[in-house]
């Protein structure tokens, strides 16, 4: 071993920013591990960032379907008890959420 390790592909502040975007609370230890692991994975993935893809269109769907449309005809909705039955916090027949600041 030469004692050289490549610079991480992703820095700590990016890890924290991404975790916030994804609404994941990571402990400081988790952040550190995540930084190493993501850097490792991105190291493998990074090959794609240098390939010549000029003029190659993106593939969003592998199937050639278009215009899959539904007639505007109502279907039965769920009984309210069913809509709410898995909800952890029911308030006034609605889904409760904590305050938002």
């Amino acid at each position: 071993m030469l004692g050289y390790s490549p610079p991480p592909m992703i820095d700590e502040s990016t890890v924290r920013h991404v975790a916030r975007l994804a609404r994941l609370r990571l402990s400081p230890e988790e952040e550190q591990v995540m930084q190493q692991e993501l850097s490792g994975i991105l190291g493998h993935i990074d090959a794609i960032t240098s390939m010549d893809l000029d003029g190659v269109p993106p593939t969003t769907h592998v199937i050639a379907l278009e215009n899959v449309l539904r007639a505007d005809v109502p279907r039965d909705s769920l009984p309210r008890e069913e809509a709410l039955r898995e909800a952890p916090d029911v308030v006034d027949d609605s889904f409760g959420v904590p305050r938002m600041d």
Partner: peptide, 15 residues
């Protein structure tokens, strides 16, 4: 519930 956005203790969602 209970006032404007920041002060509300709780909110409810109707889908």
């Amino acid at each position: 519930l209970g006032g404007r956005r920041a002060g509300a203790e709780e909110s409810v969602v109707d889908f």
